[in-house]
């Protein structure tokens, strides 16, 4: 059938904070903003490992994973999450994130498969628009029975 009834479908996003820094103000603001934009946001809290983030994303069947990395470890954490997604055979969950990331690193990460890296000061509407337009558009359409 060409047209599916999509009325009950919601964009589902998992927000997580990998690594050791304990600042979750920013990500909580994003979580609330995405909720207010009509999305279902699963917040998993601080100090998540790439494994737990990807496992949670699979169980929650989310369209996208958003992470906040303020510790400076973005060049290890983003690739580790990408690697974990690949290891689990996931190719249709969008990874995005934010943090204090120099332009040069941002380009590298976006080339490596992070869909978008937001840097401090990015307006929230920009993040909402990104999630609305870019997340959840390439979910594999699998046959049920």
């Amino acid at each position: 059938m060409a047209e599916k009834d999509t009325s009950n479908k919601k964009i589902r996003v998992l927000l997580a904070k990998p690594g050791l820094d304990g600042h979750d103000r920013g990500i909580k603001v994003i979580a609330t903003a995405l909720r207010d934009a009509g999305m279902e946001v699963i917040y998993t809290g601080l100090r998540q490992t790439p494994e737990t983030i990807v496992n949670a994303a699979i169980e929650e069947d989310v369209d996208g994973i958003g992470v906040s990395i303020l510790s400076g470890a973005h060049m290890t954490l983003f690739p580790a999450i990408l690697a974990q997604l690949k290891k689990q055979g996931v190719d249709d969950i969008v990874l995005f994130g934010g943090g204090i990331v120099p332009n040069e690193d941002k380009e590298k990460l976006e080339k490596a498969g992070v869909k978008k890296v937001f840097t401090p000061g990015a307006p929230i509407v920009e993040i909402i628009d990104f999630v609305r337009n870019e997340v959840g558009r390439n979910r594999a359409d699998e046959k049920i029975m």
Binding site: R35, A37, G38, V41, I42, Y43, T52, E60
Partner: peptide, 30 residues
């Protein structure tokens, strides 16, 4: 939210991922 239909699902925060024994699965629902 009755107004936007959005939801903030936060119960997973309390869930410590390391488990032993049987299979485990956790799903948040709005």
């Amino acid at each position: 939210s009755p107004f936007t239909g959005g939801a903030l699902l936060g119960d997973r925060v309390r869930f410590k991922e390391e488990t032993q024994g049987g299979r485990h699965f956790f799903r948040s629902m709005a």
